[in-house]
Computed example of a mutant assay.
Amino acid sequence: MEWLSSLMTTDKAIKGALIIHGVALVGTVLLALDQWRSECETKPPQPKPQYITQDTEDALKLTTLDTLLGHYNHAIRETAVKIVCDRAVNDKDTLEQLLWGITRPNYDERLKNLRALAVITDPRESMINHGGTIDRLIIPQDSLDKLHTWKAYAALVRCLELSLDPDQEVLNNDDWDEYPLRDMTDKLCLMFISQLVGTFDCEKLIKAKFVEKWLSKQNWGTTEEERHQNLAAYLRSKTNRLAEIISCIRQSPAGRVALQKCGLFPYPDTEESEADDDDTHLVERLSVLFPETLDVNSLDVNHPTRVLLRSFQTTPGSEEQRDRNQRHREAMVLNDGSHPITSDDIIQRDPTSPP
């Protein structure tokens, strides 16, 4: 019976080996079939990113842009709006047409053209059509370059002139700011002007008679003294766009002359004015001795810096005065450039020594 027991043991081993080989074969076949299926599967090609070039934008027709402006996709609509605004702001005829439109007597026509001008110069901001604040508008540099022209300044000033309020209250209240209550045409024009003078300068604005045609016609008061005080108080207490424009005009010599002629800025005292001119001239000649931040216009007449500057100047007078001036001019400045010059760096001649 031993042979039968040995045969049964051998049969079990054979069966186990057959089962293991069968499982391995099935697994190998399934793996081979899976790989074959993966290789035979046809995958759709991945879309490549497409960029809109300038040539592509120029090739779009107006009818195509009109269709894209009504597209359901927000990104497509935004891109179409940007293309339309870029074409408009770079088209000279379109820009001049809008500038001509803001000078029309009809209020609705002026406002419509002003809104269009604001949209094409900054298409990113849609608040103009949704009742948002104008102060958030920031015009890009390339759009400001298109508006830095004589026609643009003259048109903006004319638009402000047409929007003058004959019943305006006196601008003498320091507790509240009237700027948010101004008409939309005023705020839009002042928005353009503020960014233009802040980026460039106010010379073209002054030549367009902004002070004479609009600023002086604001209700600053009845008497000349009252107008001076109210304007100074307005600049001191307000931080709106109008205050920024007036501050820029006051920093310009031509602007100060225009303000003085219109009774908004007092004429300086003759002696102080001559001293200011002399000091300014000397500062230009001796700029290497003084710090770059020196502003002679902000210094008092009796400030040590101005007294020192006047001491360099030859003035007519008595012999004693000439000797004093001579001694003042005989000085040495010891400064190695590591710090701004001060009075401690100036060694003057002993006044008691003979000339």
Rank of each mutant, 00 (worst) to 15 (best):
P44N: 06
L62T: 12
L68C: 08
V89I: 15
H21R: 14
S38W: 05
A59D: 10
V89M: 06
A75N: 13
L68F: 13
Q54P: 08
T103W: 00
V26Q: 03
D55Q: 12
R77P: 08
I76R: 06
I19Y: 01
L99I: 01
L18M: 13
D91G: 04
I83D: 07
G27S: 12
I14P: 00
T103A: 09
V26D: 03
T79W: 03
N90R: 05
E57Q: 05
G16K: 08
A24P: 01
T64E: 15
G22E: 07
K82D: 15
P44Q: 08
L18Y: 02
H74P: 00
Q50M: 15
L99G: 01
D91P: 04
Q97E: 11
A88I: 14
L25N: 10
G16M: 05
G16W: 00
Q50G: 03
D91Q: 03
P49I: 12
V26N: 02
G22S: 12
E96H: 06
I83W: 03
C40W: 06
T64I: 06
G22T: 07
V81Q: 13
W36Y: 11
D66W: 09
W100Y: 07
Q50W: 15
C40A: 15
E78F: 11
C40M: 10
T103L: 01
L18A: 14
E39N: 04
L31G: 12
P45I: 09
E39Q: 05
H21M: 15
E41R: 10
A88F: 04
G101P: 08
D86T: 14
D66Y: 11
E39H: 07
L68Q: 05
G27N: 02
L68W: 09
I83A: 04
I19A: 10
A17Q: 11
K61S: 15
W36Q: 03
I52W: 03
E78I: 11
T94Q: 07
P44R: 08
A80G: 10
W100M: 10
C40V: 02
P49A: 10
I19H: 04
D55K: 10
P45W: 01
L62A: 03
P44T: 09
H21K: 13
P45Q: 08
I52Q: 02
W100A: 15
T103I: 04
V84S: 11
K43V: 14
A80V: 13
Q50D: 09
R87W: 00
